[in-house]
Every structure is written in structure tokens, then in C-alpha cells.
């Protein structure tokens, strides 16, 4: 069984936001509008967190792209009362939008603030309608959603592999964020495959995981930003 994971090189990340936008397009993440955004209700499956170190002019900025970490020991799935969020057979943390009762317990439990709640009925502008991805469900009002590692792409890749009567190869499955990253900061692949680049990077001495001490075992690794 593949253990899908990600390594994000913070040296390479420029904070351009291309992963955020491609994610929005790919997963039909609604734009909430100015008013809701000011109230803190922006929906971000992929979010760029910016850390500032030091004071002007000796300032050092670190951009941390944050998808869902698809923890191996997820705190969010434990607390869900209705099995609407769970660790699925691909090792990813799934969300069943049709079952979610909207109690937002998983959001309170997630130490990474990776989940968003649909505070209103998702509303897509007319021009946007035509670009919606038919492979991804549009969520309804009142449910929790989050990054799925573009799980629909995995499903398609599996189908294609079966149709072509071969095993699934790693290059068949790439989420939108890693595909669109202009600096190749995001590497995606099977963390259990010793041949793959992602495993090599994961064992780099710059590698770390966020809030690792909580024991959530995130499947997203970061490579520390080094000053040059």
C-alpha cells in the first residue's frame, strides 16, 4: 500500500500562491467574498502561512504552504460523531460531505487549522461556473471541508492503470498544488518507496514536520529554510 505524502522545500517556496489558486480551481473551493473574508471565513484547502522573524529592516520571511497533513494519527477523525471524517484505505483523511452534521468538532480538534466550514451557501460567479471541475463535488452549506490530496485524481489514475492493465505508477498521481508549483518546491509521492525522490528528500537533514511532538504523524514534510 502506498503511503502518499509530500515534501515542501521552504528554500524554494517564494510564496507566489500558485498552489493556492490551482487548488481552488481543481477542487471547486468557493470564493467567499470580501465581507466573509474579513470575518475570517476564507476557505483555503491550501493556505500559505507567512512567518515573520526579526524586525524591519533585518526581517526574514518564511512562507509555509499548508495543505491538510493527512496525519497517520489524525486528531480530527477521532472526535467526529458520525464518521464523516475518517482515515481511508489510501491513508488519506476523507470527508463525507453528505453525512457531515456541521458540528465543527473536527475543526476544533485539528491542531493545524486545516479545515474550513461552509458558513453560507457556496456561490460561484457566472464566469466561474464554466470552469468548475466535474470530478469534484460542490459542497453544500453547513459542512466542513478540507484538502483531500486531490483524491479524485488518485481514483482516476487507478482506473486508468486498471484499464491499461498495469500497476499504478507514482507519476500517475499528482495533486494540483505540486503539479502547478513553478519552483518545484512541492514534491509528491509514495513515502514508502525508497526509490522515489520524495523519500530521499524526506530523510534529508533539513526535513521536519509541523507540531511533530503532538504525535499526529503528518504525511507532509518540510525542508527547513536556510539563509544563504
Amino acid at each position: 500500500m502506498a503511503k502518499w505524502g509530500m515534501v515542501i522545500d521552504l528554500n524554494k517556496c517564494t510564496g507566489c500562491g500558485s498552489c493556492v489558486n490551482s487548488c481552488r480551481m481543481e477542487n471547486n473551493v468557493p470564493n467567499v467574498g470580501d465581507k466573509a473574508a474579513q470575518a475570517g471565513r476564507t476557505m483555503d484547502w491550501m493556505q500559505i502561512i507567512t512567518e515573520y522573524h526579526g524586525n524591519y529592516p533585518n526581517i526574514r520571511i518564511v512562507h509555509i504552504p499548508r495543505p491538510c497533513f493527512q496525519c497517520n494519527n489524525p486528531p480530527c477523525t477521532k472526535v467526529c460523531p458520525v464518521h464523516a471524517t475518517f482515515l481511508n484505505e489510501d491513508g488519506l483523511v476523507g470527508q463525507i460531505y453528505q453525512r457531515c452534521i456541521g458540528c465543527r468538532f473536527c475543526m476544533a480538534a485539528c491542531p493545524y487549522s486545516a479545515k474550513s466550514f461552509n458558513y453560507s451557501k457556496p456561490d460561484f460567479p457566472e464566469a466561474y461556473e464554466k470552469t468548475l471541475n466535474p470530478d469534484v463535488t460542490r459542497r453544500m452549506n453547513g459542512v466542513v471541508e478540507k484538502c483531500s490530496f486531490c483524491h479524485h485524481r488518485l481514483a482516476i489514475a487507478k482506473d486508468v492503470a486498471r484499464f491499461e492493465e498495469r500497476d499504478l505508477e507514482e507519476e500517475d498521481y499528482q495533486p494540483a498544488c505540486s503539479e502547478s508549483c513553478p519552483t518545484n518546491a512541492i514534491t509528491f509521492g509514495d513515502l514508502d518507496n525508497p526509490e522515489h525522490r520524495v523519500t530521499h528528500l524526506m530523510h534529508s537533514n533539513r526535513a521536519f514536520r509541523l507540531e511533530e511532538e503532538l504525535g499526529t504523524e503528518p504525511k507532509v514534510y518540510y525542508l527547513k529554510k536556510e539563509d544563504k
Binding site: 460523531p81 464518521h83 452534521i101 456541521g102 458540528c103 459542512v143 466542513v144
Partner: peptide
């Protein structure tokens, strides 16, 4: 808690799919 739900129409899911693991 029902007032607080985003989908109060689905509150019966707690009985249909309830997981005893959840403090709720």
C-alpha cells in the same frame, strides 16, 4: 448543540452512524 449544527436536518446521523469514540 442542535442550534449550533451547520446541518440540523442531519442530526439523526448521530444515531444512524454514531461512533462511540467521539466525546459528542
Amino acid at each position: 448543540p442542535i442550534i449550533d449544527l451547520g446541518r440540523p436536518d442531519r442530526v439523526l446521523n448521530v444515531f444512524l452512524y454514531g461512533r462511540l469514540q467521539s466525546p459528542l
